[in-house]
């Protein structure tokens, strides 16, 4: 799956944690129709559905660099710190992350308990 240059909707992205789904149009590091931006991870990308601008893209998610689970970029599911980590993996290795991130996760724990958007087991 290394730098596929796919256009059109080749498939549907689904987060393995929160099951958010959306059709993606491209997987890779170089979003189509943009020249000045490169992505630092292999990402699932769709055209930004909220704007008419064709050159705006939206990163949906990518694979966790530890467990290679497909996760969305939502803060409930994953974080990026020079690489993508799913939150379960971060929790497991919390000591390996800087204090700022640890604090961030602490703060996040409260709203994460909302009934909607519960991670699927």
């Amino acid at each position: 799956m290394a730098c596929e240059l796919e256009h059109g909707p080749p498939g549907v992205f689904e987060c393995q944690l929160c099951s958010l789904t959306a059709p993606y149009s491209y997987i890779g590091q170089k979003p189509p129709d943009t020249e000045s931006v490169i992505l630092l991870e292999e990402s699932y990308i769709m055209k930004d559905p909220f704007t008419a601008n064709k050159d705006r893209f939206l990163v949906l998610g990518s694979r966790c660099s530890l467990c290679s689970r497909l996760v969305c970029v939502g803060p409930e599911c994953s974080l990026f710190y020079s690489k993508r980590f799913c939150l379960p993996c971060v929790q497991e290795n919390i000591d390996a992350f800087p204090r700022e991130i640890q604090q961030d996760l602490e703060k996040r724990k409260v709203p994460a308990k909302k009934p909607v958007n519960k991670p699927r087991p």
Binding site: E35, I38, L40, V73, L79, F80, R84
Partner: peptide, 8 residues
Amino acid sequence: YRINLSVL
């Protein structure tokens, strides 16, 4: 480091 993109 928390940003997953880079600008040329």
